[in-house]
């Protein structure tokens, strides 16, 4: 029973990682860049939701919606202002710029909202479901459900809509996509919008589960989710989902059965071992250079 309850909380944590990892992986797939600021978009989303609910007493749904809208716009603005001019630049330059954006968001948040921790309100109360000896909180359940919904929605979106197909085409071959009349810049912008919108949802879920909100809230989950995306094979949507869930479960089990303090070491060691066996992640494909 203990095992089962750990598994469920692991899946819940993993769901949050998976949602964040989806944002990383989509952006990587299409723009071939690591958007280090992604974790901080999560934090911005959480703050927006927090203020909407606590200061303006808006209902949670409105708060979440507002967070999604703000983050979507923020993601597009970041892409337009900081990344688009660097489309032809070496990837390291883009990486450093992304780090700059990350610092910027963290410090701007600190100035606007101070670094004193905010206690995030519960968005759906503290209810629990009792299944025999097993107790599952509503938040846990909600997190897993939301993650599944997002996963299916994204799969449907990329498989069945014109925009989704354009995104797949761009991530495979930008030149050919352009020849088909696809606006590559617009598609990249759209990808950032979707990824950032998801980040807002992840932020709200994260803060519902771990209710302390500070300007650096997004950093560590961001790094972990990025790891999860690589774990699953970066660029692959099912990979991000799988990687996120596995990472969450491994982390929770490591905390439960090995040591709370060393859980990060365990998680990252597993990552290194997996990459040794599968150098492109669980679902990634190894691409060889053409000679």
């Amino acid at each position: 029973m203990r095992f089962l309850s750990f598994l469920i909380s692991g899946l819940s944590l993993g769901s949050i990682y998976a949602i964040i990892a989806l944002g990383y992986t989509m952006v990587y797939g299409i723009a071939k860049m690591l958007n280090f600021a992604h974790g901080d978009v999560i934090m911005v989303g959480s703050y927006i939701c927090f203020f909407a609910m606590m200061r303006y007493n808006l209902p949670p749904v409105v708060g979440v919606l507002l967070a999604v809208i703000v983050c979507t716009v923020l993601g597009m603005v970041i892409e337009r202002a900081a990344y688009k001019p660097l489309r032809q630049a070496p990837s390291l330059a883009v990486l450093i710029t992304a780090i700059g954006v990350s610092y910027f968001l963290q410090n701007a948040a600190q100035l606007l909202w101070t670094s004193s921790p905010k206690v995030f309100p519960s968005i759906i109360g503290n209810g629990k479901i009792q299944l025999g000896e097993l107790t599952i909180s509503h938040v846990t359940l909600l997190t897993v459900v939301v993650c599944l919904v997002i996963m299916f929605a994204l799969t449907w979106f990329t498989g069945n809509t014109k925009m989704g197909k354009a995104m797949r085409a761009c991530s495979e071959d930008k030149g050919a996509a352009q020849l088909m009349g696809i606006d590559v810049n617009g598609t990249i912008s759209m990808t950032f919008a979707i990824g950032s919108g998801l980040a807002a949802i992840a932020g709200v879920l994260l803060c519902s589960a771990y209710p302390t909100l500070v300007p650096t809230t997004g950093s560590m989950p961001g790094i972990k989710a990025f790891t999860a995306a690589v774990f699953g094979g970066i660029g692959s949507i099912p990979g991000a989902f799988l990687g996120g869930l596995l990472l969450g479960v491994i982390e929770t089990f490591a905390k439960a059965y090995i040591s709370t303090q060393l859980s990060d070491a365990v998680v990252f060691s597993v990552l290194i071992i997996v990459l040794l066996v599968r150098p492109a992640g669980l679902l990634g494909k190894v691409i060889n250079e053409k000679v």
Binding site: A166, M180, G181, I182
Partner: peptide
């Protein structure tokens, strides 16, 4: 597009 189906590839051709 190697990872898309034949029909999806054709649809991309009529994207605009």
């Amino acid at each position: 597009f190697l990872q898309m189906t034949v029909e999806e590839n054709l649809e991309m051709g009529a994207f605009t």
